[in-house]
Design a protein around this nucleic acid. Sequence first.
DNA 1: CTGACTAAGTTTTTT
DNA 2: ACTTAGTCAG
Length: 751
Amino acid sequence: MTTSAILRGMNPQQCQAVTAGDGPVLVLAGPGSGKTRVLTHRIAYLVQERGVRAWHIVAVTFTNKAAREMENRVVGLLGGSGQLDGLSIGTFHALCARILRVEADYTPLTRDYVIFDTDDQLSVMRQVIAELNLDPKKNNPRTLLNAVSAAKNELIGPAEYQPRDYADEKIRRVYVRYDELLRENNARDFDDLLMHTVQLFREHPDVLERYQRRYRYILVDEFQDTNMAQYVLVRLLAGLHRNLFVVGDPDQSIYAFRGADYRNVQRFREDYPDAQVILLEQNYRSHQAILDAAMGVIDQNPDRPKKKLFSERKQGPLIHVYEAYNEDDEARFVVETIADLVARGEYEPGDFAIMYRTNAQSRALEEGFRRANMPYRVVGATAFFGRKEIKDVIAYLRLIHNPDDNVSLQRIINVPTRGIGLKTLETLDTWAADLGTTAPQALMLLLDENVDAPFTGRARHALTAFAEQLAEWRAVRDQLAPDELMTRVLNDTGYLSYLDDRTEQGESRIENVLELRGYAEQYAGLPLSTFLEEVSLVSDVDTRDDDENRPSLMTLHSAKGLEFPVVFIVGLEENILPHARSISPERNPLATADEKEAARRAVEEERRLFYVGITRAKDRLYLVYATIRSLYGDSRANLPSRFLYDIPEKVREGAALSRRARADRDQEQFQALLRWDRGASLEDRPRRAGSARPAAATRFKGGDLVWHSKYGEGVVLSVKNSGDMELVDVLFPGDVGQKTIVADFLKRMEE
DNA sequence: CTGACTAAGTTTTTT
DNA sequence: ACTTAGTCAG
């Protein structure tokens, strides 16, 4: 392979990026500009043309999926020959986990540490709340966890945390205790992996230097999604050779809510003033109408350089906007459009994607697909490793592996039930505390019959039996492969029969556990720790069929990085996209300036999310909103999303986006919905009763002008049914602002 | 200690 | 509407 082969078919900017010389490089790429291709081809170029040993290259991504794809592409370019030996492609977390394990001597935890996921973190946090006597009603463990996580992302350890007010002081105490508890469990959370690696490097320059010498070329994908800790880590690693190659698109930054900071792009420019900056603006995915729509939407965000996306593809069909009656009509429109396009032979089922803001929205769509007997696929809805049965089995293995893992012990000590109740556990905890050890360690002391423990006959017996069991497993841990150990645990505990409750769910739980065991078989010959680490750092078992030819349903977030010939974006309503959570302070007269500023940034992120969705489409784009939507048991009438109005009229067709939907149009759609409903199978009918109700339910809807005897004229923002009351959110002019009013007190005004 | 009830809370997601 | 964590009677 020669340079020309690596560069074949690339435009000048892409070539420039691939062949850029040593030193810092920032590639600012638009959607569909082939940025992953640039990264993989650069790796091939470095190895092939510049003679860099693959061992000296590390490419960092955010998901295992992206890492896998990148690896496949590089292997595809250079073949499976030995020249790729030692190439590191992986996520930030996997890289850090490996470093921390190898360098355990320099860190406070041992090599055996386990990684706590969100569930485990929550249970630690609940313990913290209990210990510190905080009011569990006012202290949501998730909120506290977010605060701690934010601090860790900013590389602020518990000792460095500087409280500015009382609320902060509480967080500081929580953080300190939370951190202590993690250490007692010999555990780290995901944020720790990053923060502790940075700390390790800062405190031990000699260790850092070893890694700097090893990783001479560092490539980062989706750079706009890095948080502070990740950025600092990368900067440290690149400190010696400065061969840092980052690729990103600030307009596609949609993970600020979990600490990502697209300003890292700006920081990079400041920290590396000599960096080469390469722009990739040509789009190879979508035709111009779609790009015009995308630019119309994103250009409304201030503080960003205006980008000009252009395509050489000829103009395609206009963007179709459809006003659905409600979420069922929305589903009907999607399903019928797909059926139609497939029947005309223009597309295959796998060419379609339906994207929405929240997972809850998939329900109505799925029902529509089922009703039409059209197969579909939901992307990433329920994480395999998040399932209770999977977590239980893994907790057993973790406890066998890590003698200090109290969180896992608590999780499974009575699952399946073995007569160890709350009281007994409490006693165990106190006893352990008195002995100055942890509960799992104390438990093992019971193996000595002579030990003086505060348990009476039955409890002592149950605990001892469990301790003996645990000791047996630990004794065989190193002789058995992970899947064999798992089988042993399943048999000894009767876990599968515990799951078998003769329901469909029970059956699928058993299948899940068996699938996990199948997954573990791949780790034959590897230590249990490798398996456990992988399980913590991999989000899903890689067995789902990607290539089944069926439409995909997914959230806008999980659509990033993908492309489809035909894309539907549904639920384009105020309160859905942008989501109510991000706009609520906007109209609240009591919101502080800070809150309003936060809301503004949140809405900008929602806008980027819509932008990401639009730019996934290659040929056809359908944008759908509903005038009435049932969500969380209420039915609400929302206005069309503000973002829709930013799509230039000349590239769209269909619904007119008037403030008020026309009555005749409603009528027509309502009839279509009824016809569709009649087609439902008999089994579906009872279930349908509930969701058909909202159709006739509200007297007002978003955009209506109303009159109130006290506040005067106002405009309806949304309507919801609560019990048999219709509650209307109305915006009044001046200081009055938004009020929620019972429909009976409102009079409709004609425009 | 278990099964049944009640209250709460439901954005996005990876690791 | 629906799940799920927490509480309480059997």
